[in-house]
Design a protein around this nucleic acid. Structure first.
Length: 216
DNA sequence: TAGACGATAGCCT
DNA sequence: GGCTATCGTCTAA
């Protein structure tokens, strides 16, 4: 019997996970760890605390009108990042679900920093020079780094260049790793936010106990 | 090729 | 609570 290492590396979630219906993936992504390795080699980790499911069958989804140049990633293989640009300002991160040919995805709406939050703060503020970890504790409490889809994309330093990134490989600069599941009694289910169509579907999930949820 | 608008967030009242 | 910046994408012409 080999004891587990004290500081085990994050284990990526397999591509099969993303073959489940996006509503299931949205619920099960809560609590999982988002791992981001920046160009300077710093690896930041954050806990996923809010998600929304989208499918090609309902009009709120980008995929509803079929495949286009913009949403092509949604129709590709599961377990990849679909990053899009909206309102002329914000980028949003999704995890692609379902087999190629189907346009289903999960929007990641909020994360809470776990490790190297100071580096997320640097990315958010667009600071390039090195800053020490002295700001770690403050950064870990900064809701700008994760409370909202536009904010988390900015903190992770993501833009359209990151569309298509593989979320299932430890070699990737952005991936989702295993972590403890969130108990059902700590999960809230509501309708989705910021959409004008299919507004009644209860496809938003968030961790009740998290302070980083974008909206109660 | 013009025009409308969006899976938002920050600032203002 | 309201207003709006700002631009990629889609649609219709």
């Amino acid at each position: 019997m080999i004891p587990p290492p004290l500081h085990s590396a994050p284990i990526p979630i397999s591509r099969d996970f993303y073959l489940q219906p996006s509503v299931v993936v949205a619920r099960r992504l809560l609590g999982k760890t988002l791992v981001r390795r920046f160009d300077d080699g710093v690896v930041a980790k954050a806990r996923i605390v809010e998600t929304e499911a989208y499918t090609q069958d309902e009009p709120a989804s980008h995929a509803f009108r079929g495949e286009t140049a913009r949403n092509r990633t949604m129709f590709g293989p599961p377990g990849h990042a679909y990053v899009y640009f909206t309102y002329g300002i914000h980028h949003c991160l999704n995890a692609v679900c379902a087999p190629p040919g189907r346009g289903d995805a999960v929007l990641i709406r909020a994360i809470e920093p776990i490790e190297n939050a100071w580096r997320l703060l640097q990315a958010y503020d667009g600071i390039t020079e090195s800053t020490m970890e002295a700001t770690e504790e403050a950064a870990r409490r900064d809701r700008r780094l994760g409370a909202g889809p536009g904010r988390l994309a900015k903190a992770l330093g993501l833009d359209l260049h990151d569309n298509g990134a593989d979320l299932t490989s430890a070699a990737s600069y952005l991936y989702v790793a295993t972590a403890d599941d969130v108990a059902d009694d700590d999960v809230a289910i509501t309708t989705r936010i910021g959409i004008t169509r299919a507004v009644d579907l209860p496809w938003r999930f968030y961790v009740r106990s998290s302070k980083f949820v974008s909206k109660r």
